[in-house]
Amino acid sequence: MGLLSIIRKLREKEKEMRILVLGLDNAGKTTIMKRMNGESIDTVSPTLGFNITTLDFDNYKLNFWDVGGQRTIRPYWRNYFEQTDGIIWVVDSADRERMADCAQELSSLLKEDRLAGASLLVLANKQDIAGALSKDEIQRVLELQKLTTHHWAITACSAVTGENLLEGLQWLVKDIAAHIYMFA
């Protein structure tokens, strides 16, 4: 987030935030978006491309960019980095086999200059599954405590039950607001 974009944001009447929703395939990104938007989650197909969802939340207008996570289309993530205020990184907590993959993708993502300054919310999704890893275990695998370049938080949640989704979002919006709209 450069100085110029902060000034631009300040001028805008409407307080908008651009939030990028990323993660490996089958993490539950689209299901989370549908759940937050109050839509049915029964027929969510794996995302071929991206979805945009707009939510009004705490007087802010949130624009979510939910980009497909299949391996073939991960190279296209780079096209969505510009002007991002917040990143939601969704983790399939029950997919133990690919936790290392997940950690690697996240760490290479956070090296990206265009995402510098964006707040990071990690959602440890699928906590409704008894075999899921806990929030603390995921925090350790993703090495979040070593992360100094971004504000971050991790929340254990479930898109199926809706548990803790709003709590996570609340943190993200508050954190973004604190460093973008500090003069507003």
Partner: peptide, 19 residues
């Protein structure tokens, strides 16, 4: 037992029920 970036991960099975 998988290790990630040198960090030792306790295998999930020890505490969590799954097939």
């Amino acid at each position: 037992e998988p290790t990630y970036n040198g960090v030792h991960m306790p295998p999930a099975p020890s505490t969590r029920p799954s097939y």
